[in-house]
């Protein structure tokens, strides 16, 4: 590892130290059942992202590339990133899972309506941009090939 600079070695050592301190905090302050639950959530987050969220994104992008007209692909991709992340973020509010019947000040909005409002605005913007791109004759419609079917090596 002669090529590794002192800065990087020091940074790596510092990171390791900080991480080990965290692991000590994690393991020393709770009982086994609680630790098991934390372990499940730590591993579960990775599994759900890598196995479900990432695959769903791959599938939806492939589907969009196949079904959407060329002029709509770029606006749709933008809309997908925005709505995808906002929707994931909105799940705890949309489900109102933490709502308490003795506290009307918590989760006190109509989240379904709010989320729908964002969806309507984004979809409208995607449609307008798509129509404008189609009218401008495809010049602004991105690459002519437009195939973005990732993960399809055929």
């Amino acid at each position: 590892m002669g090529g590794v600079s002192t800065t990087r070695s020091a940074l790596g050592a510092l990171g390791l130290l900080v991480g080990v301190y965290g692991a000590y905090l994690l393991l020393s302050r709770q009982d086994l059942d609680q630790l098991l639950s934390a372990a499940i959530w730590l591993a579960g987050g990775v599994l759900v992202h890598d196995g479900l969220v990432a695959l769903a994104a791959l599938g939806l992008v492939a589907l969009g590339a196949r079904l959407l007209p060329a002029a709509a692909r770029t606006p749709a991709a933008v809309g997908f990133v925005v709505l995808g992340s906002i929707t994931i973020l909105a799940i705890p509010m949309l489900g109102r899972f933490g709502a308490k019947d003795d506290n009307a000040t918590l989760l006190d909005r109509n989240y379904g309506l709010g989320w729908l409002g964002i969806v309507v605005l984004v979809v409208a913007a995607v449609l307008v941009a798509s129509v404008l791109r189609a009218r401008s004759g495809g010049r602004a419609a991105g690459p002519a090939t437009g195939t973005d079917v990732e993960g399809d090596p055929s």
């Binding site: 790596g12 991480g19 301190y21 630790l35």
Partner: peptide, 30 residues
């Protein structure tokens, strides 16, 4: 959103995993 579908204690766990995550982030940057 006060949704706690787990049996670990939030504050000590969120705090400890913060140190672990920042440590791993610094290693990753290195």
């Amino acid at each position: 959103a006060q949704w706690y579908p787990w049996s670990f204690s939030f504050r000590p766990t969120h705090y400890a995993v913060a140190w672990v995550t920042i440590g791993a982030l610094v290693v990753h940057i290195a």
